[in-house]
């Protein structure tokens, strides 16, 4: 599946991330993200998956004292999105994120999805209506909420809230979507829904997903990266990583002997 013709959407180049206290949570990490593909990040708890993921939308900038070294280059414009001269808000306009725990705003279902559009100065009510509907359909939750768009988002179930958050992240037409263990709080049916959703979304955008669930990584992703103690141990297309990993550590982790 790794072919020379698959276009690159982004790549980390010798990325290091150092937390405020001096903890180097990502070490010298280089990895590609291929366009319209799903890349899964796996590895034991605390190995730096979330830290790495959150570099992509400069979430770490919200807290003082954090430091990036190296680059994450986005294509086709060849922008190093970690460059201090690049506004983190610009980066977040292009790369959206779905968090581990559903985190809807205490607003209506409609407002939750519309917020990203309002932030982008879209004022046309009809256009917002259209976009909200499209995003809710895209997140496979439209049928459940179409009659109660003005209801409070907190009144939805956990799985519905997570799909609402996906709709929120989707409404703004991102180039890349980041998912941090999006199904860890969900039951198997909701999980299957969201996995299916990700596969569909990957037709038009690039996805980077952190997961603790090996089957999930095997089912949904095109490429898999195994991280351990902040380092990238192995990267490859998902089939080969899961059938014959080249590194012993990867194999131990995947087969459950470790982690």
């Amino acid at each position: 599946m790794v072919t020379a013709t698959t276009p690159l959407k982004a790549e980390a180049r010798n990325l290091n991330f150092i937390y405020n206290g001096g903890n180097r949570a990502v070490k010298n990490l280089s990895m590609p993200l291929y366009e319209n593909k799903i890349t899964a990040l796996i590895g034991p708890s605390g190995c730096g998956k979330s830290t790495f993921l959150r570099c992509f939308n400069r979430m770490h900038d919200l807290y003082p004292g954090n430091k990036y070294e190296g680059q994450i280059v986005m294509h086709p414009d060849n922008t190093n999105i970690l460059d201090p001269a690049v506004d983190p808000i610009e980066v977040r306009m292009r790369i959206s994120m779905v968090f581990q725990k559903p985190n809807p705003f205490p607003k209506s279902i409609y407002e939750n999805v519309a917020y990203g559009l309002r932030v982008r100065d879209i004022k046309n009510k009809r256009l917002i209506d259209e976009k909200v509907e499209e995003a809710l359909k895209g997140a496979a939750i439209w049928n459940e909420v179409k009659d109660r768009l003005q209801d409070l988002a907190f009144n939805l179930s956990g799985g519905q809230q997570q799909r609402l958050c996906i709709a929120r992240a989707l409404a703004t037409d991102p180039e890349i979507m980041l998912f941090d263990e999006p199904t860890s709080a969900l039951d198997p049916i909701a999980t299957a829904n969201i996995e299916e959703l990700m596969s569909e979304l990957s037709n038009k955008l690039t996805i980077l997903v952190v997961t603790h669930n090996m089957q999930q990584a095997a089912r949904v992703s095109d490429y898999t990266a195994y991280m351990y103690l902040g380092e990238l141990i192995e990267y490859g297309d998902t089939d080969s990583i899961f059938t014959h990993p080249t590194r012993k550590e990867t194999e131990d982790y995947i087969t459950g002997k470790f982690g």
């Binding site: 979430m59 985190n103 705003f105 990203g116």
Partner: peptide, 14 residues
């Protein structure tokens, strides 16, 4: 909660 704050920043809010 921090999660709500991060959610707002994550969609590109100033």
């Amino acid at each position: 909660p921090v999660a709500i704050r991060e959610a707002a920043y994550a969609v590109g809010a100033t």
